[in-house]
């Protein structure tokens, strides 16, 4: 464990908690893509199937449980409790265009052709594009609530910090994982324009609005 990976996990946890609290406190999921949250729940489910079979550390197991619990709770709040506030008119990104290619690619490009490994690879590919419905929703509505932009900033930072973690692990212990690395680069690149808007607008106290 190095500082980049720890900060990455922390940033990821903060993002997940910010979103859950935003929906719970405001009793509204306006501006949030339920489809992205479904994809994240699928990512965690397919990645952490070894939760009980492969103990790494208390930290690892407890974080996996928190991620899975929070992601399902968020999906429940969006499609269950606060579905009246769900923006189904704008949350229309076709997630099958993300699920099917990720699944096919996971069968073709993986480290080991075993069920757990293929599911892990699928979760890595899917995670790299899982934010697209959310970014699509923000582009359609043309703006995002400030709390939502903080959520996206924390979520985008997590994988950027993981890229630094992989750089660190490569130079310190010769470790590299091309599948996770290339997916992580794609995932982070998707946030670039958002990062620019966040830093140039939100940090100056303005609302995040996309150029119409």
């Amino acid at each position: 464990m190095n500082v980049f990976r720890f900060l990455g996990d922390l940033s990821h946890l903060v993002a997940i908690v910010i979103l859950l609290l935003k929906i719970w406190k405001t009793r509204s999921c306006s501006g949030i893509s339920g489809r992205s949250q479904i994809l994240f729940a699928i990512v965690f489910t397919t990645r952490y199937l070894d939760l009980f079979s492969n103990f790494i550390s208390v930290y690892n197991t407890s974080m996996k449980i928190v991620y899975i619990t929070c992601s399902y709770a968020t999906v429940y709040l969006i499609y269950g409790k606060f579905k009246a506030t769900y923006d189904f008119n704008h949350d229309t990104f076709r997630i099958e265009f993300l699920l099917v290619p990720s699944a096919i690619l996971a069968f073709l490009v993986n480290h080991d052709f075993s069920p757990l490994e293929i599911l892990w690879t699928f979760s890595i590919y899917l995670e790299s594009v899982a934010i697209l419905p959310q970014l699509f929703l923000v582009s359609k509505t043309g703006e995002a609530e400030t709390i939502t932009s903080h959520y996206l900033f924390a979520l985008g930072s997590y994988r950027l910090l993981y890229l630094l973690n992989w750089l660190w692990r490569y130079f310190s212990q010769g470790f590299y994982d091309l599948i996770a690395l290339l997916s992580g680069i794609l995932q982070t690149v998707l946030y670039c324009d958002f990062f620019y808007l966040y830093i140039s607008k939100v940090l100056k106290g303005k609302k995040l609005s996309l150029p119409a």
Partner: peptide, 10 residues
């Protein structure tokens, strides 16, 4: 080298 088997990252 490549990481196979158990993945130790979240």
């Amino acid at each position: 080298g490549y990481m196979t088997g158990s993945h130790d990252e979240l």
